[in-house]
Design a protein around this nucleic acid. Structure first.
Length: 497
RNA sequence: GGGCCGGUAGCUCAGUCGGUAGAGCAUAUGCCUUUUAAGCAUAGGGUCGCGGGUUCGAGUCCCGCCCGGCUCACCA
């Protein structure tokens, strides 16, 4: 018999023993007096004399380590990412409780009643008077010292990762703090949270390949949304002047350390402002989110210090000049000159050429949080033109750690111009560009009812979380990143035996 | 999709030139009433990712495939 089978059998036998002792192996409600983090916060600095008179506690946790010494032993219970030692001795508990203690395995969930004390080495511990059994583990826990290191196992069995690696838990707690911070900041400014379709008959709001699905009763093909944008702007038309949505987008494209097929975006739209207004808002929101997530505005990411208290701003053309790599730095007249742009790029259109040159020269240099503004119209089908320079649009992106973490613009609200942009996209589609926008006539109809001047923005929650948790891969900040299916697992057969 | 790296006990990892598959943790048994990566003794535990090939002999060399990581391309 393999070790794993042997262990499984042993533990199934132990379930029976636990029952024979009068305990339920998959127990009942447990009304604790404290969580482990609460005990550590409240009594962590109390000396032995301060624990008199006795402080009675009732706590639950998962068994992380056991050190048995004959008629006594120490157990570390873990809960909420922290651990508390409990001390069981034969003469302090009932006979059945001691027998139960002797049958405990690493990973079992138990509760204890007892009083707090300091051990000889000074560790705050619970002197156990009663043990409660809450749930049995049948499988072996990861190694106590190294934790679970195999990244594939960490992603596939995130529950084990969370049990074994406190740092992993911390990442997802911080992620929740980030989302919470953004929600609070938006709510304080009068935004309301909405939910728009994730299954859409037409996809739009971004340039990306979609996932397809099918509804049987209606017998229609649908797309998983690549962005909520066009629905959120319909709501602006409808007079919901400040809306936001935090949820998943789906893009049927590559997977990398910065891309997961489903990812979380915050999109928000504010009527009567423009991209300049959004820049100021964004700078403040990033500062506050950094503060809420990490406790400071300076964030350490992969050895670099990123200062979210000081977000730089460059126009795209300025950035090309500022971060020019190799050779002589160009002048502003050159960066504005269509012929110069085409000469320095593989693209056939000046606007696309500018973007390519920007990406080649500047993008990777944008380690510090930076706003890049004023984009060419060709790459921005939904943004409003600059009044004095119609080939450019009022748009900016936010970069940090060399990644794009946000995208914002003054929304195009002229239905005639929007129709023209859709027609341009259709022409690109006919030339074979799968990612070009589809025509969304209902959206154009909505604009025909009048949409107020509006600023809209999207922030990538996963990438922000990477930065604020110092995580090198997007998979480290997504609880269950997409992986290929793993094949036979074998637990069902073992349980049936 | 291309390139590079990896997959050996439940976990963390060694494995030399191709010659009987190892350690620590974990598990089992015994001893141990303030230990803390507890300790001591004994024992069990392997589809070396999968399938071919070369060879007297393959964890090791060759080919194909699967899974994962990094990276380039694409993308946010």
């Amino acid at each position: 018999m393999s070790l794993e089978d042997e262990l499984f059998e042993q533990r199934l036998d132990r379930v029976a023993e636990i029952e024979a002792l009068g305990f339920r192996p998959y127990g009942q409600r447990f009304d604790f007096t404290h969580t482990i983090p609460q005990i550590l916060a409240e009594y962590g600095s109390h000396g032995a004399e301060q624990l008199e008179p006795k402080v009675q506690v009732r706590v639950a946790g998962r068994i992380q380590t056991v050190r048995r010494m004959g008629k006594a032993g120490f157990i570390h219970l873990s809960q909420g990412g922290e651990r508390l030692q409990v001390y069981v001795r034969k003469d302090a508990v009932e006979e059945n409780d001691f027998k139960l203690y002797q049958n405990l395995d690493l990973g079992d969930l138990i509760g204890v009643d007892g009083y707090l004390f300091r051990t000889r080495t000074g560790e705050l511990s619970v002197h156990v008077e009663k043990i409660h059994f809450l749930a049995k583990t049948l499988l072996a826990m990861p190694e106590k010292f190294h934790g679970l290191e195999d990244v594939e196992l960490r992603y596939r069995q995130r529950y084990l990762d969370l049990i074994a690696n406190p740092d992993s838990r911390r990442v997802f707690v911080t992620r929740a703090a980030i989302v919470n911070s953004l929600r609070r900041q938006l709510e304080q400014r009068g935004f309301i949270e909405v939910e728009t379709p994730m299954m859409q008959p037409l996809y739009g709001g971004a340039t990306a390949k979609p996932f397809r699905t099918h509804h049987n009763t209606l017998d229609i093909d649908l797309y998983l949304r690549i962005a909520p944008e066009l629905y959120l702007k319909r709501l602006i038309v409808g007079g919901l002047d400040r809306v936001y949505e935090i949820n998943r987008n789906f893009r049927n494209e590559g997977i990398s350390t910065q891309h997961n097929p489903e990812f979380t975006m915050l999109e928000f739209y504010q009527a009567y402002t423009d991209y300049r207004g959004l820049m100021d808002l964004t700078v403040e929101m990033l500062r506050q989110t950094a503060l809420d997530a990490t406790g400071g505005t300076e964030v350490s990411y992969q050895g670099e210090r990123l200062d979210f208290g000081n977000v730089r701003r460059f126009s795209m053309r300025e950035a090309v000049i500022e971060f020019w790599k190799g050779g002589e730095r160009p002048a502003m007249e050159q960066v504005k000159d269509p012929e110069w742009l085409l000469k320095h790029s593989s693209k056939a259109v000046p606007g696309e050429a500018l973007v390519e040159i920007f990406e080649n020269h500047a993008e990777r240099s944008l380690t510090q949080p930076t706003i890049i503004y004023d984009y060419p119209v060709e790459v921005s089908p939904l943004s409003k033109n600059k009044p004095d320079e119609p080939e450019m649009v009022e748009r900016f992106e936010i970069y940090a750690a060399g990644m794009e973490i946000g995208n914002a613009y003054t929304e195009l609200n002229d239905p005639l111009e929007q129709l023209r942009r859709f027609d341009l996209q259709l022409a690109m589609r006919e030339r074979g560009d799968e990612e070009a926008h589809q025509m969304d006539e209902d959206f154009v109809r909505a604009l025909c009812y009048g949409m107020p001047p509006t600023g809209g923005e999207g922030l990538g929650i996963d990438r922000m979380t990477m930065i604020f948790t110092d995580s090198p891969s997007i998979r480290d900040v997504i609880l269950f990143p997409l992986l290929r299916p793993e094949g036979p697992i074998g637990v069902a057969d073992k349980l049936r035996r």
